[in-house]
């Protein structure tokens, strides 16, 4: 590929400006988290000293540690269960012909179009009747079972692109579904699976309305709820404390970002998502 030098310079310039604007919004989160209310009123956007560490102490003392633990338990279980089921379903849809496949896959596809809020109340009543309220299952079950249409569709497309010869050879060697799935399909798909997992983790981590509804007891609530608590007191909201809480809440995402970035980028770069 041949690219002229001047074009490259212009590209760098444009990329740095545009991505810079986007990153500045994230930077503001960190900048504001270190400001007192007075400082925010006078100089909201630029870093300033002294850093108001008090904001972090206040946010931390709101019980954020417990919320973080719950969020980790919830998000990890959701990602694990969701991805496991999605991989299996995508594998079946991608590699096999069987009666009713059309209908069943249609069921998966149509879910993408149902507005989420429509099902909120009936689902709450269902969870109540299953006697799952105030248990972590109330969040995990509906998030694992039935909300993975997107993952199934993406993974299925990817699995379809794997060469049939590999599977053929393995079948001749007498491999069953387990071997075909875990020993052949999975090793070739780690990147796409980890991107799906990271996206799902991010979604589970930020989920707010449902956990707030089904988890009453404070010791079960996740960090997204904790952040709302932080901004929920009477009187003047202290934006610095809210931002500090948000910074603390984003630590796990930062860890995942550092650890999983390469897989995430690679996974979405394999071209599985297209028409």
């Amino acid at each position: 590929m041949h690219t002229s030098r001047i074009f490259t310079y212009i590209s760098h310039g444009l990329l740095l400006i545009l991505i810079g604007i986007a990153l500045f919004q994230v930077a503001l989160l960190f900048i504001m988290s270190g400001k007192s209310p007075a400082e925010i009123a006078t100089n909201p956007m630029l870093p300033s000293l002294p850093i108001e560490w008090e904001n972090y102490v206040t946010a931390w003392n709101m019980g954020i540690r417990g919320y973080l633990t719950n969020s980790i338990i919830l998000s990890v279980s959701i990602v694990f269960g969701d991805i496991l089921l999605s991989v299996i379903a995508a594998y079946v849809f991608a590699r096999y012909q069987f009666p009713g496949k059309r209908l069943l896959f249609g069921l998966v596809l149509a879910l993408m179009m149902v507005p989420g809020i429509l099902t909120l109340v009936p689902r709450y009543l269902l969870i109540r009747d299953l006697r799952l309220l105030d248990t972590l299952w109330a969040v995990i079950l509906p998030s694992v079972l039935g909300s993975n249409a997107f993952q199934i569709i993406v993974l299925r497309t990817f699995f379809q692109s794997l060469p049939e010869e590999l599977f053929e050879a393995a079948r001749i060697d007498g491999a069953g579904h387990r071997v075909l799935l875990f020993n052949i399909t999975l090793p070739l798909s780690t990147a796409i699976i980890s991107s799906m997992a990271i996206l799902r983790f991010n979604g589970a981590w930020n989920d707010l309305i449902w956990p707030l509804l089904v988890l009453n007891r404070d010791e079960l609530r996740p960090i997204s709820v904790g952040l709302v608590m932080l901004s929920s007191g009477a009187g003047a909201p202290e934006i610095g404390v809210q931002m500090a809480g948000s910074v603390i809440a984003s630590i796990p995402m930062i860890v995942i970002f550092i650890v999983g970035m390469r897989s995430f980028i690679d996974g979405l770069s394999v071209g599985a998502i297209k028409l």
């Binding site: 309305i209 707030l212 009453n216 007891r217 404070d218 709820v225 608590m229 901004s231 929920s232």
Partner: peptide, 10 residues
Amino acid sequence: VEFISQPIDG
């Protein structure tokens, strides 16, 4: 007594 915090939003 077990208190259940209700954030005011919603």
